[in-house]
């Protein structure tokens, strides 16, 4: 348990699955050798197998406080990194050449089951789930490391791997029930999302948050009563952790998705949910029922012209309000400027 905890709230009603967050993260953090297959930020379509494929069946986390065995995900379950024949296609002189991944037809990758979704037409549905390391209050990865190489910072609760101590044993990868840790076969070390620590320390939001065109991601300290995180998680109780039954107490929360009503055989709207509540409960626990009721009620109130602090917060008309105290531009930070073109890249 840290003294303070930074957290993120992701509004699933606003995510359009554009993967800008994924690329912002990729360009900033995982472009080096050995990191080709790493996606510290993913956006997968739900329902679906997710990233890595079938991660919800791989175990880990805790049950009644007891550590649960987990399975080591394979690189192929995340999706092997693909190389494309750019040279041949763009400069080879063959006008019929098309872009193809090398090494045969790939059969899995991040968000491979994009838009497959669930339900039967006309009541089909899908939504997107962006995921990063949850920087859990009770990190299963940290407890599983025999080297003590994983630690949680007192000042902000960010969970980090000390690569000087890591020996690549990967117990962390097994124990993380969200399978958010990757193995770098070149360095022999485990690596994962840093919650953009060097940016956050300078008051700049994480790259995935700041680059999001949909204004989907809120940031802040959990205990900041005036910040959007506290309002959404504790006051309105509409932001919920993914798979709370894993008992790691994630610090990434989700606004569950609303959907249009189902239609009957004649095409008339019914009272029935389009996204089965049992499915949402399997993701977010029983509290999702009340959270959705609150969202519907506040939405209706706003539609009637009544005030709604919740809707105003979620709409986030003023972009930087999303980020609580982490609202500075990287352009304004001297340290960031010095690092431009270096490891930190140039994401704004």
């Amino acid at each position: 348990m840290s003294d303070r905890q930074v957290a993120m709230v992701i509004d699933l009603n606003k995510c359009i699955g554009c993967q800008t967050c994924t690329i912002a993260c990729k360009t900033m953090w995982t472009s080096k050798e050995g990191m080709e297959g790493m996606w510290w930020n993913t956006v997968s379509t739900a329902p679906g197998e997710g990233t890595p494929k079938g991660w919800e069946q791989m175990g880990g986390g805790f049950r009644d406080g007891k550590a649960q065995p987990g399975r080591l995900p394979k690189q192929s379950e995340f999706g092997d990194p693909w190389e494309f024949n750019y040279e041949e296609t763009l400069f080879g002189g063959d006008p019929h050449a098309t872009l193809k991944p090398s090494g045969g037809d790939p059969d899995w990758g991040t968000n491979w089951d994009e838009d497959v979704g669930g339900g039967e037409y006309p009541n089909s549905f899908f939504f997107y789930i962006p995921r990063i390391c949850n920087h859990c209050t009770k990190p299963a990865c940290m407890e599983a490391c025999p080297r003590g190489a994983i630690f949680k910072r007192d000042e902000d609760g960010i969970v980090l791997i000390n690569e000087d101590h890591c020996r690549g044993f990967r117990f962390c990868q097994e124990a993380c029930p969200y399978k958010e840790i990757y193995y770098n076969a070149v360095t022999g070390k485990s690596q994962k999302c840093l919650f953009c620590l060097p940016r956050m320390e300078e008051g700049v939001a994480t790259a995935c948050s700041r680059q999001c065109p949909g204004r989907v991601r809120f940031l802040g300290f959990l205990d900041d009563e005036d910040g959007p995180i506290h309002k959404l998680v504790y006051d309105h109780k509409v932001a919920l952790p993914l798979h709370p039954e894993y008992e790691t107490e994630p610090n990434v929360f989700y606004i569950p998705p609303l959907a249009p009503p189902s239609f009957d055989a004649e095409g008339n709207p019914t009272e029935e949910d389009r996204i089965p509540i049992t499915y949402l409960m399997s993701l977010f626990g029983g509290e999702v029922v009340e959270a959705l009721e609150t969202l519907k009620a506040e939405k209706a109130a706003r539609k009637r012209g009544e005030p709604s602090e919740l809707m105003d917060t979620l709409i986030s008309r003023n972009w930087v309000d999303l980020f609580g105290p982490f609202n500075k531009s990287p352009k304004d930070i001297e340290a960031m400027r010095l690092m431009e073109g270096g490891q930190l890249g140039t994401a704004q």
């Binding site: 649960q68 065995p69 599983a144």
Partner: peptide, 8 residues
Amino acid sequence: PNDYIIAS
């Protein structure tokens, strides 16, 4: 050294 390794 830890419960996770024992459990797994």
